[in-house]
Amino acid sequence: MDSLVVLVLCLSCLLLLSLWRQSSGRGKLPPGPTPLPVIGNILQIGIKDISKSLTNLSKVYGPVFTLYFGLKPIVVLHGYEAVKEALIDLGEEFSGRGIFPLAERANRGFGIVFSNGKKWKEIRRFSLMTLRNFGMGKRSIEDRVQEEARCLVEELRKTKASPCDPTFILGCAPCNVICSIIFHKRFDYKDQQFLNLMEKLNENIKILSSPWIQICNNFSPIIDYFPGTHNKLLKNVAFMKSYILEKVKEHQESMDMNNPQDFIDCFLMKMEKEKHNQPSEFTIESLENTAVDLFGAGTETTSTTLRYALLLLLKHPEVTAKVQEEIERVIGRNRSPCMQDRSHMPYTDAVVHEVQRYIDLLPTSLPHAVTCDIKFRNYLIPKGTTILISLTSVLHDNKEFPNPEMFDPHHFLDEGGNFKKSKYFMPFSAGKRICVGEALAGMELFLFLTSILQNFNLKSLVDPKNLDTTPVVNGFASVPPFYQLCFIPV
């Protein structure tokens, strides 16, 4: 009986604490739906499609509103004006990374994606500088992407125009580009180590996009005490870190300090320079996690976009025909596509942009946080508050993009057929937390897609009208449904 009384008292205290925290903070924060004790607004949000729920709530509470995930307040920004004001106009104040408990377990605050403060700034600055020195957006990395595009075309030829699921092959190409940047090595598509790495990356994007992960991140005790797919994700990350550590040891034994070959060499050189400046942010643990982040951000996002792009091109054969006509006119058949071609191919450029806009790969991006107490639109948001960005509300804005739910390359073309930029184009987020590999991803999408369409016609196994382009999961990332196609050599 005594234990029951204690339990009831504990629960009562928890409920009172929950109510007090919510009521004391709500006077400062933007308005929002009334949260339930302990669980907050979790029942009012469709976990399978958070973005749709945010759109519905914005119609009631406006472009800036507050939700509670458990006891934790989260300020939501919906629509271009609110997102721009926060991420661009007040970029420094909104540059923090929001709480992501599962990532905390995986990387302990290291790396480039989930770190904060001085650690994040130094690692991000170093990573950007190193990638630029190796030619991100310049010639040397373009050579690597072109080489991988040629290998991709050869792998597709091996399908002999038979029906195939493109998931694996389209994942190999961007993964190999990242391998060449980090390890100075590309792998054969049949290499077992490479296959294991690909498998872990593919599993992780599916797990991260599941409703279960949303629950884990908002009720963090689940991570330590409950079984579930989150444990598989943590094991996959541990596998990748151990693999990278092996490569780091190989580099330490063979590195030429006067001739760095890749990202690992550059990081080890930085560690050597910083060894007298303790404590340094440049450690082996930081290198492991930064490399894992580059793999995660640079492989599955690009391969998922490529997979979605081919599905949309199957669905819209008239678009595919126009792209192939432009390829034939500008590039021809006797040389590989290059980035200089893009400025002469406005329709193809528009298609690449429209694919990214339409699929809305990361509907709410990753959570941000404010780095200080900030007054925002007459609300006071306390330091450390998590900020949720609705990228969907920007990419699918119906004023900027008429009929935003329709796939239409003319969203990025003017009346004369010239490519038209849009400030609403934010597939990689915006501001200080914009994806480090934005330029690389854009290069890969253009070169891989043009190389495929230069060499193959795409054949659907069903009537294009019957192809479903609805994402199968739409949590962290929008993942396309399973499909097969035939690559018919031109």
Rank of each mutant, 00 (worst) to 15 (best):
T364M: 15
L311M: 06
D341R: 00
T283I: 06
L43R: 06
F187A: 03
G296V: 15
V76K: 00
K138Q: 13
A106H: 05
Y308S: 05
E203T: 11
F134C: 07
S12T: 06
L9T: 10
E93V: 12
P471A: 14
D49C: 06
E444A: 04
Y308A: 07
T469V: 06
L467D: 00
M269V: 08
W212C: 03
I50A: 08
A238V: 12
F295S: 01
L43N: 10
A369F: 04
T34A: 08
G91C: 11
A103R: 10
K235I: 06
P33V: 00
L9A: 15
I182T: 04
Y243T: 09
H410K: 15
P464E: 08
Y424C: 11
H251G: 05
S115H: 10
K84S: 10
G228A: 04
T34F: 08
D191Y: 01
M426C: 10
L310G: 02
P221K: 07
S115V: 06
V370T: 14
S127D: 04
I387E: 01
H251Q: 04
V352R: 02
L43E: 04
T229R: 10
E155R: 03
M406G: 10
K52I: 04
S180R: 05
F419T: 03
Q252W: 09
F134V: 15
P33A: 00
H78R: 06
V83T: 05
K72W: 05
V8K: 00
V352Q: 02
G137W: 11
I452G: 02
F295T: 03
Y68Q: 08
A477P: 04
A309L: 08
D165Q: 01
M443V: 10
K459Q: 12
F401E: 03
I327A: 03
E281V: 14
H78Y: 10
L453Q: 01
L314F: 01
T469G: 05
K459R: 14
K459L: 07
F476T: 09
L170M: 11
S140G: 11
L36R: 05
E154A: 08
I452A: 00
M345Q: 02
N176S: 02
E272D: 12
F412A: 00
L197E: 00
L195D: 04
I215W: 12
D341M: 06
L201S: 05
K119Y: 15
L208Y: 07
I50M: 11
E288N: 14
K158E: 08
E325R: 15
S180E: 09
G27D: 10
F187G: 02
N196P: 05
L294E: 01
K235T: 09
T386H: 09
N418R: 10
L395M: 08
K138H: 11
L294V: 05
K200Q: 05
H316M: 05
R139T: 13
C338Y: 06
L312G: 01
L9Y: 10
K158C: 08
E92D: 10
L7M: 12
L485H: 00
G475S: 10
N218E: 09
C151I: 07
S343L: 15
E104A: 14
K432F: 12
S3G: 14
I182Q: 01
F428A: 05
G91D: 11
L447G: 02
C372K: 13
F407T: 01
I284T: 04
T130M: 07
K235E: 11
K84Q: 07
I374E: 02
L268H: 04
C13S: 15
F226Q: 02
T302I: 15
P163Q: 05
H78C: 09
P427N: 08
G117D: 11
G416D: 12
M198H: 07
G98D: 10
L380G: 06
Y68F: 10
G96T: 10
D414K: 06
I50T: 10
D2A: 11
G109C: 14
Y347L: 05
E325G: 07
V323P: 01
N41H: 04
N474L: 05
L234Y: 06
E281C: 10
K247M: 09
G416Y: 15
L208S: 10
G137V: 08
G91P: 08
L152V: 04
E155C: 05
H353S: 08
V462K: 14
M198V: 15
N217C: 12
E104F: 07
K322R: 15
C372A: 09
R125Y: 15
F412R: 01
V113I: 13
L9N: 00
E281K: 09
V436S: 03
C266P: 04
Q278S: 11
W212F: 08
P163Y: 05
E444S: 05
L449M: 05
K322D: 08
T364A: 09
N259T: 12
A149S: 08
E281G: 12
P363C: 10
E85C: 06
L9R: 00
G416L: 15
N457D: 12
N398D: 14
Y379M: 06
Q214I: 09
V248D: 02
V75H: 00
P227M: 13
P481I: 08
N259S: 13
G431L: 06
K206W: 10
I42G: 05
K275H: 14
E438L: 07
K28Y: 15
E122L: 07
F425T: 07
R108T: 10
D188S: 13
C13L: 13
I488A: 08
F219G: 03
V351E: 01
S365C: 11
A291D: 02
L447K: 00
A441D: 03
G79S: 05
L361Q: 11
S3I: 13
E104Y: 11
E285V: 06
I213Y: 13
L453S: 01
L43V: 11
R186Q: 03
F194I: 11
D143I: 15
K241P: 00
V351G: 00
N107D: 08
L67M: 08
V323L: 07
F446L: 00
V355G: 00
R97V: 05
F134K: 15
E93I: 06
F134R: 15
G437S: 06
K322T: 13
H316V: 03
N204Q: 05
K206G: 10
C372Q: 15
F412E: 01
M406L: 11
F412Q: 01
H344T: 09
C10G: 14
P166F: 01
E272T: 10
I359H: 05
A439L: 06
T290V: 13
K423F: 13
K399W: 10
N289I: 10
F65K: 00
